[in-house]
Amino acid sequence: MRMDAKIEGAAAAAAGEALSVAGVTVRFDGLAAISGVTLRLAPGEIVGLIGPNGAGKTTLVNVLTGFQKPTEGGLEIDGRSALGWSPAKVRRAGVARSFQAGRLFGKLSVLENAQVAAIAAGLSLRDARARAAEVLDRTGLGGQLGQIAGSLPYTDQRRLDIARALASRPKYVLLDEPAAGMSDSECEDLMRIIRGLPGSFGCGVLLIEHNMHVVMSLSDRLHVLDGGRTIVTGTPAEVQADRAFLTAYLGAEGVE
């Protein structure tokens, strides 16, 4: 199933379908958070975005989702420039995200959290409800539809955040540290869900993650940021062998 999606994904990429930034720079008060970053995400692939704290990962995600207007550079969704679009408009064009801090709709039920995302994508109350139930079922929350989101245990909140992102059938989904704070067994569970996303939803996944085990085993390609600049891109194997990557992660002494 995943292979099919990959082939579809490759076809889509050939047809110019992708979420991409080119030469993006974001400056806050003259200080560059990211500079000259170019990244491309096609439907059907999983791209890992890694880098030490302060490398500019979240800024890049904010640019990709319309929350941050870049100082320089371009943002394109499927060949159309999306520069200056509102977050809501970017979302309707097919780019969804999850949040580091969860940011659920705390007083709504689990079902309503996912339902409202489908409604915002233009579905009727009833169709949205059906789709939400389906997505929640696939992310393992099917048994807790009526529960108030704010009362869920931590790991379920992370899963609901992902389910909510998926409920609008996005073409691209950006997951911001989904495994943060999870135990090993909870990680395995989450990895199974993420690995299945391109196959079951046909979407491209940009995975921002500190957990190296998770990122290395899920990603087709990696994009490493440090100090706001791209230092390496390539397959997990290529990146792990790269000197710049090792320096960024282990420090200069670690390489000696």
């Binding site: 989702t65 949040f99 705390g106 007083k107 709504l108 409202v116």
Partner: peptide
């Protein structure tokens, strides 16, 4: 429902396309 979602978290509501 969309308004109540924004009441609970307006940033997430924007990111949800509301």
């Amino acid at each position: 429902l969309m308004l109540k979602a924004s009441r609970d978290d307006d940033v997430a509501a924007l990111a949800t396309g509301i």
